[in-house]
Simulated assay, not measured.
Amino acid sequence: MRLEVDNAAVGYGPRTVLEGVSFTLEGGDIGCLLGPSAAGKTTLLRAIAGFEPLQRGSIRADGQVLTGDGVQVSPERRQIGMVFQDHALLPHLSVLDNVRFGLFRQPRRQADARAREMLELVGLADTAQRHPHELSGGQQQRVALARALAPQPRLVLLDEPFSSLDPDLRERLALDVRAALKHAGVGALLVTHSQIEAFAMADRIGVIGDGRLQQWARAYDLYHRPASRFVADFVGEGAFLPANILGEGRIATAFGEATARNLAEALGSQVEVLLRPDDVIHDDDAPVQAQIVHRHFRGAQFLYTLRLDSGHLVQSLVPSHHDHAIGQRIGIRLDLEHVIVFARADGDAGATRGS
């Protein structure tokens, strides 16, 4: 199912939460609406499901209008499955009966076969006769997914599906759910505020903030080519460093003059450069040194927060066998593959980027 959201506005009564939202999710792809709490993500998801009206704009599925132009197709006629944050499993029914719940119009034998097929798909075939309270939170979430897939929907919507789970389980389950959806050939749209879940599951991610869809892109592009200051701040880690663009791929920063590949900017422009931790390289022979003010051990790497002599803070990912103490000074240099710069004048949030 190809989902098209065109210039959509959603809200509560007269209050608009999101304005001018447009994106396309291709059939079989998994998309994600990523943003802070109360940004309007769930409201938009409910509008796609048919539970909330649009204030303006339209929603189409394979070219058919679901909402807009005077049309409001009811939720049960949209062929869209929904996985809720709290799973919404019926405690008095077995796992098999929960999955079979949406198949009441089918003959019993056919419904049983389909429900068992979906439990097999999510790796829970041996739990068919158990009850929800006998399962872990991750298993309950997979049962909810199996139930949503059983009626063969054209699209599945997932509203913060992993929020109640331990952080260590979320990424692993997100990968399992992605694999199940891809195997079933069903597209999905996920709502979350967790970048880990978004990166693990989604083919396309829409970052929502400040009342609009800031960018709809691959995770790689959100990280390396953010379209706005909001996206640059929200996705990944990094720091902004004042710089002057000298031309011919050269910039002047607190590091001194550096080479910046893929840079196309006006000579002398005063900007801020977005530096990701992988742009700042630990190099004992580098002429620039910085003081370690914080360190975060990540197993294979340390994430060091460093203070330059100018007072600016940057971050660097360093292999963990380089075990340096807080307060120690280390050599660092820039290695800028993609340069993202933001105008400094009047706090302008617009981004100019090399591509």
Rank of each mutant, 00 (worst) to 15 (best):
L124H: 13
A125K: 15
A125F: 13
T127K: 15
T127Q: 15
A128H: 14
A128M: 15
Q129R: 15
Q129G: 15
Q129L: 10
Q129Y: 15
R130S: 10
H131P: 00
H133D: 15
H133I: 07
H133L: 15
E134G: 01
E134L: 00
E134H: 01
S136E: 01
S136C: 01
G137Q: 01
G137R: 00
G137A: 00
G138K: 04
G138P: 13
Q139R: 04
Q140V: 02
Q140S: 02
Q141N: 09
Q141M: 13
R142M: 05
R142S: 01
R142Y: 08
V143Q: 06
V143D: 01
V143F: 05
A144T: 07
A144G: 05
L145K: 14
A146H: 05
A146L: 06
R147G: 00
R147K: 14
R147M: 07
R147E: 08
A148S: 04
A148V: 03
A148N: 01
L149A: 07
L149H: 07
A150D: 03
P151F: 05
P151W: 08
P153Y: 04
R154T: 06
L155E: 13
V156M: 00
L157C: 07
L157A: 05
L157H: 00
L157P: 02
L157Q: 05
D159A: 11
D159F: 10
D159W: 08
E160I: 11
E160A: 12
P161R: 04
F162I: 02
S163Q: 02
S163E: 01
L165C: 05
L165F: 07
D166A: 12
D166Y: 04
D166M: 06
P167I: 09
P167A: 15
D168L: 14
D168N: 13
L169V: 13
R170T: 11
R170D: 13
R170N: 10
E171T: 12
E171F: 05
R172N: 13
R172M: 11
R172V: 12
R172C: 10
L173Y: 04
A174D: 10
L175C: 11
L175H: 10
D176I: 03
V177R: 03
V177C: 12
R178K: 13
R178M: 11
A179M: 12
A179P: 12
A179S: 14
K182E: 05
K182L: 10
K182W: 04
H183Y: 09
H183V: 10
A184L: 02
G185Q: 13
G185H: 10
G185Y: 08
V186F: 02
V186H: 01
V186Q: 03
G187I: 03
G187F: 03
G187W: 04
A188W: 01
L189T: 05
L189R: 01
L189G: 02
L190R: 04
L190H: 03
H193R: 06
H193K: 09
H193V: 09
H193A: 09
S194I: 11
S194P: 09
Q195M: 08
Q195C: 10
Q195R: 09
Q195Y: 09
Q195I: 07
I196K: 10
I196Q: 13
I196T: 14
I196V: 13
I196M: 11
E197Q: 12
E197S: 13
E197I: 11
E197H: 12
A198S: 12
F199W: 13
A200G: 06
A200L: 07
A200F: 08
M201P: 00
M201F: 12
